[in-house]
């Protein structure tokens, strides 16, 4: 960062056609605020560096946790608070979690005022640059959450986004789509043994993407990455977790913007 001005203008030149000075806000969900602050900061920094000057809202939670647990009134109250924070009509909100995006999308459909909401990776695939200035010679293991795979939050956009970074190697299991990791909000504590077992199977599935010793190229992942850190919270606390550092794609993008 010797000359941020110069780096920034190169970037602008590269992407001036797609970079709009959009009025956007960034929503950092409750658990990222508390447990993954670095991911939140990276999300903020990336958007700022790309010229979006995000407004960070004080919104606390989209209500998904309570809604999935069957607490309708509690979830509605949280969503109302959230909507108050994002009450500007046609406002664009970027959300740092795919499952929260999906929940909000369902809620917003029923709400009178419609904010435009995007999951972080989805937003940058649509409105961000086609390439990033700095190569990131790392190997990442990618976890695709159910919201990203089956839902409406933007199918598989995290992969498209990471593919725009040069020298980055992304390991993803081949073959049929993976099963749910077993988190599911309150599901994780309602049926803990089942949830834990699903988590272990998900880790085995992720490991199937890592080349075995003797394979060429032999790669070991530098980190486990996902647009849904809630899944990784569950996987990462499993006692059998292989210890890969846990990152949000925003943290990789930040490196690619140096």
């Amino acid at each position: 960062m010797e000359d941020p001005e110069a780096g920034y203008s190169t970037l602008l030149l590269m992407t001036c056609a797609t970079l709009a000075a959009m009025e956007i806000s960034l929503f950092v969900p409750c658990f990222i605020n508390q447990l993954f602050p670095e991911a939140g900061m990276a999300g903020f920094d990336v958007l700022e560096r790309l010229g979006f000057s995000p407004r960070v809202t004080q919104a606390h939670c989209c209500g998904q946790v309570l809604s999935n647990a069957g607490d309708g009134p509690g979830a509605q109250a949280l969503f109302k608070r959230w909507a108050q924070q994002h009450s500007q009509d046609e406002e664009t909100v970027v959300i740092l979690s795919a499952s929260c995006t999906e929940h909000l999308r369902n809620e917003i459909e029923a709400a009178p005022k419609r904010a435009q909401i995007f999951e972080f990776c989805d937003f940058l695939v649509r409105f961000g640059p086609e390439s990033y200035p700095t190569a990131v010679p790392k190997t990442l293991l990618l976890h695709t959450s159910c919201s990203a795979q089956h839902g409406r939050a933007g199918a598989r956009t995290q992969r498209s986004l990471l593919d725009r970074i040069s020298k980055l190697r992304v390991l993803e299991p081949q073959g049929p789509e993976g099963e749910c990791c077993g988190f599911g909000g309150s599901f994780a504590t309602t049926f803990p043994e089942l949830s834990g077992s699903m988590g272990k199977d998900r880790i085995a599935y992720l490991q199937s993407a890592i080349p075995k010793k003797g394979d060429t190229p032999f790669l070991t992942p530098d980190a486990l990455v996902s647009a849904d850190l809630s899944c990784l919270l569950h996987l990462g606390t499993l006692r059998s977790y292989p210890g890969w550092p846990i990152l949000h794609p925003a943290q990789i993008l930040w490196e690619a913007l140096q």
């Binding site: 447990l35 309602t190 043994e193």
Partner: peptide, 25 residues
């Protein structure tokens, strides 16, 4: 109660970072 259930799934309770996102910001 929730913490016990979390551990029953073969998981440790997550360690907390020094500061939250909003504090860092």
């Amino acid at each position: 109660k929730a913490g016990r259930a979390w551990k029953r799934g073969g998981r440790n309770l997550p360690k907390l970072p020094k500061k939250s996102f909003h504090e860092l910001l």
